[in-house]
Design a protein around this nucleic acid. Structure first.
Lengths: 252, 252
DNA sequence: GTACGGAACGAACATCGTTCGTGTCAAGGT
DNA sequence: ACCTTGACACGAACGATGTTCGTTCCGTAC
């Protein structure tokens, strides 16, 4: 390596390690090379120290990921709710969320799905989302449920996007992945998979942005069109039924 | 260790390694200890051999995961479409998918989301799903799109479930995770997050199964209620627009 | 001036996926 | 009956990961 072999101890002056500086450096790496590139060693190297030093401020990798996600969530802009433009504002908010998790910090979506984040900055976004849904006339129950499903939708789309837009070290690979999917659906065997073969062209139509916006409208319209009465009713449903799936969910 | 120190070479007779045997052993481990527990070493140990031997039949870990997912997909039962009961059959199919990915093989959902699977067994499920949607009267475009979003929904739910139902080595941790989420939403600061605080009780209401089924109906009803005309239209939308998100998706 | 305590560090450990070179064994040709 | 060959299996090792241990440094309070 070209680095000076002398010990780092007698270097002139370091910017003083801190939790904020560590997270900032981690996000910088994530922005440039993707979240996957953020390892404890790589991060320590960027801060001109060793991996062990990080553990003074961060409990471990998992805690670091949580801090990264929470800090990145703080960069997502949140407008004040204008009831007249609730649907437009909701689309816009979800789009910013998706951009943050797949464009600004490639691979961040994975961190968002690996846990259920409850930090202040994330809560800020949730608050805005729920406020917009209420402005749209949703019932409490519908709005609450939409918060869940919309977050999940954005995260899943962003994650899927990050599968294609991997680090730009091999631009050809992207096309190859597209090609693989395309062929599988369009050229499906009409004998065994008649419906897939018939719908193949329809499945690969439209660009990502169009599909993303459409999906959001589908969910919103679905919530409006689906009666909630008698479902998600007041008393928590009886538990202990082994046959239902998913078996459980956060509740009181 | 308590194992015999003598070389494995002079053991009586081994069941002859094969790709099928490897995948079967991997799924057995996944069923008992979760997908995370399937490492090349652990898998080799279960087959009474070394890690290197696996690479004769399986290209690597990624290829193994693909084989596991595809083989597990083969265990998902698929009914013949009965147009009269399309919605019921669709619910049932999605539920079986979810169960496979979170109950039968905990953690399998992660594998399903890490790539877009196109194997025969997965295609079999897609075929059934699309067939049911067509039986429900969906347009080609709506059915094709629903296939996407419903798969994503099931995968995301199953993945979220696997976050709670980790390996049963610490039953207390599950309750703790519930507790963490519950507190965050129900006891949110009404000053900063008024809507979250107001909707907190609604957000944690209902059990998982109820929410799962409701989500499916929301998507189905949303597809019915959302006009597709002029959206996802015939000619692929113009590309090269840097401002749209997601930037791209598999298409012709 | 000195002792204390947190911060930083070098080295190491355990585990992971993967590769290399060699050993083994059975089938097939001579 | 012997030899050759080639695919398979294996032990050992490599590089990279997250994490921990014991020590060293340095600023600060006494």
């Amino acid at each position: 390596m070209a680095t000076t072999p002398r010990s780092r101890r007698d270097r002139p002056a370091k910017p003083a390690l801190s939790r904020e500086a560590i997270v900032a450096a981690a996000l910088e790496i994530a922005a440039e090379e993707g979240v996957e590139a953020v390892t404890m060693r790589r991060l320590a190297q960027a801060l001109d120290t060793g991996p062990a030093s990080l553990y003074v401020y961060v409990a471990g990798r998992e805690a670091l990921e949580e801090l990264m996600l929470e800090t990145a969530a703080g960069e997502v802009e949140v407008e004040e709710t204008d009831p007249e433009r609730w649907r437009e504002q909701l689309h816009s908010l979800l789009e910013r969320m998706g951009r943050m998790m797949s464009e600004r910090y490639p691979g961040m979506a994975k961190l968002g799905m690996a846990r259920i984040p409850v930090g202040d900055n994330v809560m800020r976004i949730t608050e805005s989302m729920l406020s917009l849904l209420k402005a749209g006339g949703a019932s409490d129950q519908a709005a609450a449920y939409a918060g869940d499903i919309l977050s999940m939708y954005v995260g899943a789309i962003a994650y899927e996007q990050s599968l294609y837009a991997q680090p730009a070290d091999d631009p050809e690979a992207i096309g190859a992945e597209h090609e693989r999917i395309h062929r599988a659906f369009v050229a499906a065997d009409p004998g065994r998979y008649p419906t897939v073969a018939a719908l193949g062209p329809a499945m690969v139509r439209g660009d990502g942005h169009e599909r993303f916006r459409l999906g959001i409208d589908v969910i919103i319209n679905g919530l409006i069109a689906t009666p909630m009465d008698g479902r998600l009713s007041e008393p928590p449903a009886a538990l202990g039924d082994e046959e239902v799936w998913p078996p459980d969910a956060p509740k009181g």
